[in-house]
């Protein structure tokens, strides 16, 4: 069975439609969405309505949470003053236009979803805002996967797709404050972290949408890159009164506001 996993749509309705057409063409039978339905892009309500109408199981992303709870960003959300200013502007724009039923829908989204030994989360299972960077310490990365008892952890949030295989992981646990200072070691079978990239706000140098198809039969992970009419989204960004620089960055395959690059940072939200 083919499972499509998509993330970080960010109000880009054109990109979402292109991805939905593509995954249908690829024969995907199930779809999971890792959140960030809104924020930066010009069609937040339309994107949420489409996801709801298709009844796609969806986790809550950091932008979805912010639009419900209000901005409460850790420093990792904004690596620069400029990114912070642009992020706040986009938040205010989205917050002013989001329909109340859409906000209610975003509020009830879960932090994680499970399907057998597959886990789906936006940033990490611990936090929508945490970045699981490909260079992240292997022990910490393995801990994130084991904590949810998963074989494969699908995440998004960085907007840059990758597959990380954690092989032959060995963990040693030493219990202090016990009479014999017991030490217990155990090995884990192969685990994987799959970042599915971004549908609506890519950061890989091209404007194309990315998502992942996981084939349970062959245990195959395929990264899909889908062209779409991004100029339509760029025009809508400007028409809707969002900053034209957002349109330029989308056309360049740059995120609207840059994200953190520090793989050792632990999110404090």
């Amino acid at each position: 069975m083919k499972i499509a996993v998509l993330s970080c749509i960010h109000g880009n309705f054109e990109a979402l439609n292109a991805v939905l057409r593509d995954l249908d063409h690829q024969g995907a039978e199930e779809i999971y969405c890792l959140g960030d339905l809104v924020g930066y892009g010009p069609h937040p309500n339309a994107v949420v309505e489409m996801i709801r109408s298709l009844d796609i199981p969806t986790c809550q992303g950091c932008w979805d949470e912010d639009i419900v709870e209000g901005l409460n960003a850790c420093e990792c959300s904004y690596p620069s003053l400029l990114a912070e200013a642009r992020g706040k502007l986009a938040h205010e724009w989205t917050n002013a236009r989001i329909h109340e039923e859409v906000r209610d829908y975003l509020a009830q989204l879960p932090l994680t979803l499970k399907r057998d030994d597959l886990c789906f989360a936006h940033g990490s299972p611990q936090n929508q805002h945490e970045y699981l960077m490909p260079e992240m310490n292997a022990f910490a990365a393995l801990e994130r996967v084991l904590a949810v008892d998963a074989r494969i952890l699908f995440c998004g949030h960085t907007h840059v797709p990758y597959v990380r295989t954690l092989e032959a992981g060995t963990m040693t646990v030493r219990l202090h404050h016990t009479p014999d200072q017991r030490e217990q070691a155990f090995t884990t079978p192969l685990r994987r972290i799959v970042n599915v990239g971004s549908v609506g706000e890519p950061r890989h140098g091209r404007p194309n949408a990315t998502y992942v198809i996981y084939d349970t039969d062959g245990d195959q992970i395929t990264l899909r890159e889908v062209e779409y009419d991004y100029e339509k989204t760029c025009a809508a960004i400007i028409d809707q009164g969002l900053p034209p620089i957002f349109a330029w960055r989308l056309a360049q395959g740059l995120e609207f506001a840059e994200r953190a690059d520090d793989p050792s940072h632990v999110c404090e939200r």
């Binding site: 620069s80 400029l82 990114a83 330029w248 960055r249 360049q252 840059e258």
Partner: peptide
């Protein structure tokens, strides 16, 4: 200037934004 921000603005400026 915040250097990280200036870096972004300069990139945008010199790449046609």
């Amino acid at each position: 200037f915040d250097p990280a921000s200036l870096d972004v603005v300069w990139h945008e400026l010199t790449h046609g934004a």
